[in-house]
Design a protein around this nucleic acid. Sequence first.
DNA 1: GGGGGGCTACTCGGATAGCCCCTGTCCGAGTTGTATCGG
DNA 2: CCGATACAACTCGGACAGGGGCTATCCGAGTAGCCCCCC
Lengths: 156, 156
Amino acid sequence: MRMGQGVEWALHCCLNLAWVGDAVPGARLAGFYDLPPAYLNKQLQALVRAGVCESVPGPRGGFRLARPADEVSLLDVVVAVEGPEDAFRCTSILGAAPGGDPSLDYSGHCAISLSMRSAELAWRRELAGRSLAEVAADVVRTAPDAPQHVRAALAP
Amino acid sequence: MRMGQGVEWALHCCLNLAWVGDAVPGARLAGFYDLPPAYLNKQLQALVRAGVCESVPGPRGGFRLARPADEVSLLDVVVAVEGPEDAFRCTSILGAAPGGDPSLDYSGHCAISLSMRSAELAWRRELAGRSLAEVAADVVRTAPDAPQHVRAALAP
DNA sequence: GGGGGGCTACTCGGATAGCCCCTGTCCGAGTTGTATCGG
DNA sequence: CCGATACAACTCGGACAGGGGCTATCCGAGTAGCCCCCC
């Protein structure tokens, strides 16, 4: 099981956008971390589609958070980039077994599927319970001048 | 983020092996769920390599659990098939940012990496806390004759 | 000098190739059970 | 009739192609600012 690279990029970018508070072009964010600009742009587009970020076209444009940082959870960002479907996919394998009905959907009855879903729910709950603002506060606790540095490097 | 199909197959097969208690050929397990025999064999080999199952070569051979069902957790099976590495990979992106050291490993300091690891830990803890025996008990609670059916279909 | 129009530069947005891992398959090494042959 | 031996069938194990999704890139649509020209 491997998570896409874009998730890490999106999380760091959202954190920076929370500190800047203004629209930042994708190219500048890419230059900040030395990332492929066009590909990072793709991830930011996904964030816009999910309603996490807003985009401003034209000069002086860029991306900014669509909501306050304490209303954006890590799960929101992960789902925006990776998609909403679960990692474990129950293919109703029991329908092919002797005594099973191939036309039935066992994802809600199969004990294995339920256990796996329960575990993923714990993962989602953990991510949903941590907001960008909380993560930002953690960063400030160890590096108090991080917001200032980011703003100086990303603000026009 | 997508989990491999083999995980579902491996979990169901391990549950059945727990009920049969004897060595079952991979081809018979594949026929039980109408799965590609050679590919399922690949997953079972992974379980053997991880020490979850044992293999017996030759006629009357097959696969059986290497430990009692209450000592095999769902996490053991998932890790055996999917590999031990985490889904979220911190690439120390902060090392490329201004003021960062590219030679440093930030996976233990970066607040985002720590949050993601914490969430995955919750997922792993959930899976590690549920054993095959518990899942089997859940199945018996709703379908009391499932073990007998499986034994009849898989035992020689 | 003030206002309007055109132009340029810059931004996002979607459409387009390349590569790696999951999926699916095949054949060989090893072992057990059996049938046969000899004593 | 009993035992040893050769054979055959069945099993796992690792090596070999094919496809889908992540990675990476490019170019077009649209807009804000600016410069120039005209009144």
